[in-house]
Design a protein around this nucleic acid. Sequence first.
RNA 1: GCGGGUAUGGCGGAAUAGGCAGACGCAAGGGACUUAAAAUCCCUCGGGAGUGAUCUCGUGCCGGUUCAAGUCCGGCUACCCGCACCA
Length: 817
Amino acid sequence: MADSIKKTAEPYHHAEIEAKWRESWKKHPVNTPGQNKKKYYCLDMFPYPSGAGLHVGHWRGYVISDVWSRFQMMNGGHYIIHPMGWDAFGLPAENYAIKTGQHPSISTAANVASIKEQVKQIGAIYDWDMELNTTDPAFYKWTQWIFVQMFKKGLAYEKEMPLNWCPSCKAVLANEEVVDGKCERCHSEVTKKNLRQWMLKITAYADRLLEGLEGLDWPEKVKKMQTEWIGRSYGAEVNFPVADAAGNASDKVITVYTTRPDTLYGATFMVLSPEHALVPEITTEEHRAEVEDYCKAAANKSNVDRVQNKDKTGVFTGAYAIDPLNKEKLPVWISDYVLADYGTGAIMCVPAHDDRDWEFAKKFDLPIIPVISPDGQDVDISEGAYTAAVGTMINSGDWNGMKSEDLKREAPGMIEKAGYGKKTTNYKLRDWVFSRQRYWGEPIPIVHCAKCGAVAVPEDQLPVVLPDVKSYQPTDTGESPLAAIDEWVNTTCPECGGPAKRETNTMPQWAGSSWYFLRYVDVNNDKALVDRAKADEFLPVDMYIGGVEHAVLHLLYARFYTKFLYDIGVVGFEEPFKKLFNQGMILGPKGVKMSKSLGNVVSPDDMIRDYGCDSLRMYELFIGPPQQDSAWDERGIDGVFRFLARFWKMVNENIGRDVPETEELVRLRHQLIHTISSRLEAFQLNTVVSGFMEFNNKFVELTQKDGVDKETLKVFVQLMAPFVPHLAEELWERLGENDSVFHSTWPVADQAAMQENTREIAVQVNGKARTVINIAVDADKDAAIAAAKEALGDRLTGTVIKEIYVPGKIVNLVVKP
RNA sequence: GCGGGUAUGGCGGAAUAGGCAGACGCAAGGGACUUAAAAUCCCUCGGGAGUGAUCUCGUGCCGGUUCAAGUCCGGCUACCCGCACCA
């Protein structure tokens, strides 16, 4: 085959070239560890092996990571960790099993096999010795092991509480999985269900998850999303004694959380959430019926209603609370705009300085007292609250005259000292609901014993293998299908040996993906999750590439797991992903998201057949900036294919011509190196491709004349290699090289060699371009102005009142008529 | 509502750091080669005026700074994304 493609005039036969080098690289891998090599770990977010296969959008991320990996291999001689695996537990495989009766492990294995074939078409340098699958017992043994460690440290615990329940998936959801009150996966409206569930105490890591973000080379958007998701705020808890209508205080106390203790004197009422424990206790007989009705209605309201209906509703309890500062008597109301599970579930209301309180006060005709005055002026609160913490305190007793911004900071400490509250930090982040009532997941390695309670399965008995079941059907009761297998459920307690039952919930899909990246470098280790020496040598991940949709799900969970594993000494670093790149989506031809139901999914398979893998790789990058969404246009690949064919022809025609170097060729060569390298380093991959095309056009032109020298051809081939590895390797061989182009060193641009002696610059008159002049780069102003005037000739009329010359850029003559 | 992003020809997109707007492609039109087609190669390709050299308008809208603005500043509009009663 190789012999048949050696003639210079022959066309670009992509299929033959690609097949040839695929075989060759299989025998002689180009990415190998070496004593003096530094590692570079470039990771893709691993795919879910569904039956639908890969489309051109998946391809894009894998092409980007492969280009980057190969660039790191050549530029710096790194040994590349570039693995691929399968995130294979989860609902689609289970739903398929329900429909067909086929075991999910069978459909999953089939899907993995077919997608793996597709992934191989990319021509990437994946190391298949590192391949892993989250459903493999040898892998999930360690997923379970981590859970056991968390359980031992008290970070995994059971709790009964109202939870997000997806009636369609028939499973609970984590807060991160609820979007707009709907299930992140199937978009069904989420309801509440009271269930006993396993929780992971991610909140124990809230501060570290927040602070760790600072040093990461991640898109600001993702960092911000995580920051807001964690939602740390500083404030105070303040105690308000409950009183009756006459003002007689009882022993009951309402504790509120506020971030604006500076406005304490402006509180004119209190609001409790309908779920607040004190509601039944403090409500007076006169208001009891009304309050009970309201609370019942609130409980039946869907999440969506409570979140989206911003109209304030509420009822008065008949009870009062005493402001600890000014001893004012504040009426206590109930409203569902106060969340039960944030802060204390109760708030003090300062309608003058909070929008929501303002609306509530207007609606129920409650007093509004301003306590902050911006610039000493009276603050206008007739149209809405004044919410900024900027101004001077008024109507605030001892605090009058203080600056609101200072007081906001100092008040929590003052309140704590005075003994009517304490300084507090609050988070929006909740603990992670970690159990699912479904079959196709990792069994939670816990045994329930009547005597000993929840007991972890001993580590030497892991993995707890997922048993076979006849029916995968989820139940409406919140019980997993595993609960029906008596012989599996009934076991003995590892502690007392008495009869016990296995935990029948499984882990959520995120369990495996929270740590898989640690396993690649030591996939066959049966003694440890990862050998510490290997972890130290090859981890963490230097570059992580994937979609932005995991900003607060997978990426937050993975950071949490890594910090925990750091704490128990498994790894020596706290942050798993040093650099993160979010590639944009490839949209369907009309600019809408590709989906099976719309029938606009474009498969790479036909394009590879017609144009070759190298063309498709390059086109995936050429279509637009990698971080931006792009609509697929199948016609565009023609342009890339034509370019590769012209490049192929250009190089082949110059091989053997033995063209001597000229100043122009050397200059173009170094300009090429500089252009490509700087764009590649800046991740401007679409303009790298344009750059290749532009330079190729110049070299094609030179080929018609005196030709292109061998060194320049070699450099061009090297620069192209990360993008079109097969084509580049073939040309590299034809240029007489014996070793792989990927073992060559990335060329370096010589700034001096790039410089031109003369340069074409624009001549403007009154800021409008009129002509161009060719002028020495180091020409002085007088020479440049003279040349410009000469070039303009008769067209320059009037009096020149100002002459501007920016060397290498422009001449502008300001003229008065 | 709050926060972030985007807006450039028929289309995708380029344009260090304020310096010739539209690179590089796609599509379209014209031509060469061919019996013909495909492939390939060459030319044209933002709007308007002019035979023409050339002139003029033009980067979502309105205004400003500057010799010079797609780029900087102020004020809008539209679309996309994230958060969304978190006190």
